[in-house]
Every structure is written in structure tokens, then in C-alpha cells.
């Protein structure tokens, strides 16, 4: 059955890197990569950030020490500029998928709710993939968009506040200190921070889960074996809960509601080492 090759003009069978199609394809890959990698970068940053902030749990001393170290070495200044840029790049590339029309967004919500019950039935083996629980990822995506929007606003405010702080330090001011942070959180801005904390951890958690599923599912990795949805989902859940707990406790300390729970521990360590 020979095929009539007239159907396929040469333009279509000869491909080169200058062709429109190729450039377009390249752009799509680039956008996907940028939105993905900036997201991963921001998530990793947020976890590091969280750990540094949570140093308040061991007392003001450590907190001030770390803050001072970063500002002194100009790391903080560089980071905040970098993060601000990445933050907005991520916003621009990741939001390219958000439907413009309200009607479209409603469609997604409706469908997401409708297919919630899509879990498999009797033949589900315990060892098999994630289907035992309800389908939630569609609705989660809507919440990802919402939390992303919230982060865009709340995060911008936070970046502005902290940015001013750090800038002050560069100009000879006090910079970030436990005292000031506590004051700020205690003064009512805690509301902003609780909201930001939950949005960020949720957004980062779900985002990373999605990222892992998009690029690594089915791949054999050392230690974890074959990457599956179940495994990635479990990891995501664990990290999410872990950081939200740390975050809440940290905020509680900063708000002066409780004393730093690990202060005595730190004192022991410091005491011993001195």
C-alpha cells in the first residue's frame, strides 16, 4: 500500500531549527521549565526560610545571630532581590495556564466537584497507586490558583516590609532582629503571617507534588524505587504538615503567646560547648 506522498509537502517533512514550529515548541518547553523550576526554587527557599525563622524557637539569641550573619555577609540583600525577581517570574509563567474567563474557572470547579468520587473499586490492591482516596487534584489546582493570588498580594507586602528592613541595615539601620519581628507579629500583622504561612506551604506543597508527578512519575530512582503518585503524595502530605506545625509554633513565639520551647535545649548545647 504505497502512500501518495503528494499529501505531505516538503515543508512539512523537512524540519529545521529555524522553523516556526520548532521555535514555538521550544518556547512552550521553556515556559514550562521556567514555571516549574522557579516554583521548585521558591519552595526550597521557603523551607530554608522557615527553618531560619524557626530558629526563634531556640531563643532570640540564635535568631539574631543568624539574621545578623546573613545581613552582614550581604547574603540577605542579594537573596531578597533574587527572590523578588523569581517570585514575579514564577507568577508570570505559572499564571499562563489560568483561564481568563470566570465561566471557564467555574467549569473547572464544577467538574472538579463532580468527579470527586473517582476512586477505583474492588480491584484496588493495597500496594497499587493512589486511587483509594477521592480525586482531589482538580479542586486542589483551583486552591493553588487562589493561594497563589493571595501570596502575590500578601507576599508582596511581606517582601516590602522585610526589604525595607534589610535596606535599612545596609544604610546603617538595625536590620532584622527578634525584637522587631516579635513586635511586628504581635502588633496584629500576625493575621497576615498566618494567612501567608498557610498559603505558602499549601501552594508549595501541592506545586511540588504536581511537579514531581509531571516529570518523574514512573522513573526508577535509587532508594525510593519507582516514583508513584502514592509516594509523591505521601511525601507532600508529610512536608506540608511538618512545616505548617513549625510555622504556627514559630508565629506563636513571635507573637509572644508562648515562650521559645527549645530555649533550654539551646542553652544546654551552648552551655556545654562554651
Amino acid at each position: 500500500m504505497p502512500i501518495n506522498t503528494e499529501l505531505y509537502p516538503e515543508e512539512e517533512t523537512h524540519h529545521n531549527q529555524a522553523s516556526d514550529a520548532y521555535q514555538k515548541a521550544k518556547k512552550a518547553l521553556r515556559d514550562e521549565r521556567i514555571s516549574g523550576f522557579t516554583g521548585v526554587f521558591l519552595a526550597l527557599f521557603m523551607w530554608g526560610h522557615m527553618l531560619f525563622v524557626s530558629s526563634i524557637l531556640t531563643g532570640e539569641q540564635t535568631f539574631n545571630f543568624i539574621a545578623d550573619l546573613f545581613e552582614h555577609t550581604w547574603l540577605a540583600q542579594i537573596t531578597i532581590i533574587l527572590i523578588t525577581i523569581v517570585f514575579f517570574v514564577h507568577f508570570v509563567t505559572a499564571s499562563r495556564k489560568i483561564p481568563r474567563g470566570l465561566r471557564d474557572r467555574k467549569k473547572i470547579i464544577k467538574l472538579g466537584k463532580s468527579i470527586k468520587g473517582s476512586k477505583n473499586r474492588w480491584n484496588q490492591e493495597i500496594t497499587s497507586d493512589i486511587r483509594l482516596r477521592n480525586h482531589s487534584e482538580t479542586i486542589l489546582w483551583i486552591w493553588q490558583v487562589r493561594s497563589g493570588m493571595a501570596i502575590l498580594i500578601l507576599g508582596s507586602i511581606h517582601l516590602f516590609i522585610v526589604g525595607t528592613d534589610i535596606l535599612q541595615r545596609s544604610l546603617g539601620g538595625a536590620g532584622i532582629t527578634a525584637l522587631e519581628s516579635t513586635g511586628r507579629v504581635g502588633s496584629g500583622l500576625w493575621l497576615l503571617y498566618v494567612a501567608l504561612l498557610i498559603c505558602v506551604e499549601f501552594h508549595a506543597g501541592v506545586g511540588l507534588y504536581r511537579f514531581a508527578v509531571k516529570w518523574w512519575i514512573g522513573k526508577q530512582l535509587p532508594l525510593v524505587g519507582k516514583v508513584t503518585r502514592r509516594k509523591t503524595h505521601l511525601v507532600e502530605q508529610f512536608i506540608l504538615i511538618f512545616f505548617i506545625i513549625i510555622g504556627i509554633v514559630t508565629l506563636a513565639v513571635l507573637a509572644g503567646l508562648i515562650d521559645p520551647p527549645l530555649e533550654s535545649l539551646m542553652a544546654d548545647v551552648l552551655g556545654n560547648s562554651i
Binding site: K24, A25, L29, I115, S118, H135, E137, V213, K214, R229
Partner: peptide, 23 residues
């Protein structure tokens, strides 16, 4: 392959809502 599937209507159109896998 690259031109066919590395596009917004191809694999990068996927947002990753995973419903396909569930249904």
C-alpha cells in the same frame, strides 16, 4: 516529535490535575 508534542496543545498544555489517571 519535538515540534508535535512540545506545545501548549501537546504535553505542556497539561496542568497536572491527574483526573485522567483517576477515571
Amino acid at each position: 516529535w519535538f515540534e508535535l508534542v512540545s506545545t501548549e496543545s501537546g504535553v505542556f498544555g497539561c496542568i497536572g490535575m491527574m483526573a485522567c489517571d483517576d477515571v
